[in-house]
Structures are given as structure tokens and as C-alpha cells.
Amino acid sequence: MSTPATAAPRATSSHAVAAGHGSKRGFVTGSILSILLTVIPFWLVMSGSLHSQQATALVIFISAMMQIIVHVVCFLHVDAQSEGGWILLAFIFTAIIVGITIVGSIWVMYHLDSNMMPMSVEAMNQMQ
């Protein structure tokens, strides 16, 4: 008699759990990848082993983007199935708004800045 009693809460909770939890292997993969993607950018910047500043910036930017995707997939378990796709849809919508907010603000403010701030001598010479 105790078996159905213990099985019943598992069965009801598995409905909610299924939305948020992936496999054990996905979690281990995610942990290893996120440790690697954290160590690489810190090591690059602190040791200065890539002598080009642009190359370093590119590598740490790509590491950050990859690590965000790893966390979203392996730790937050966002996929097309959870909550009938609404989790993924809300995430994509937010990612687009975040992109517009950050890229748009920097783009607009950079141009305002370069048009309205006091000019350097070189910029003045180019105008004439």
C-alpha cells in the first residue's frame, strides 16, 4: 500500500519537474564547459599571452556569449518543449530587447558624443 502513496506525489510533481530539469549528463557537461569558458578569458587577460588587444577582446567576447548559452541550456534547461514553448519564446523575445537596448544605446550615444563633444585638434583639421 505504501508504494502507490509514495509514487503519487512523484507522479504529480514530475509534471512540474519535467519543465525545469534536464539530464545529469547535461549538467556535468555544462559545469565543465562553464569552468573552461571562465578560466580561458581570465587567463588570457591576466597573463597577457595574446599580445593583440583586439584578439583578446574577441576571444573573451566569444567566451562570454558561449558561456551564457551553456548556462541557459544546461542549467536553466531552456528548450522548445518546456511550458509548451513559452519559456523559449519569452527568452528569445527578451534576448532581442536586450540586444536592441544595449547595441542601440551605445550606437546612438557614441554618434551623439562624437558630434557634440569638443573636438580634438586632428578632428578639427579634418573638417577644414
Partner: peptide, 15 residues
């Protein structure tokens, strides 16, 4: 925090 350590700290130091 990934965004913070990348864009605030690491980008700040290599700039």
C-alpha cells in the same frame, strides 16, 4: 555575472 566580469572587469582592464 558572466556579463559583469566580461564587459566591466576584463574589457576594462584590456582597454
Amino acid at each position: 555575472w558572466i556579463g559583469v566580469f566580461t564587459f566591466v572587469y576584463l574589457f576594462g582592464v584590456i582597454r
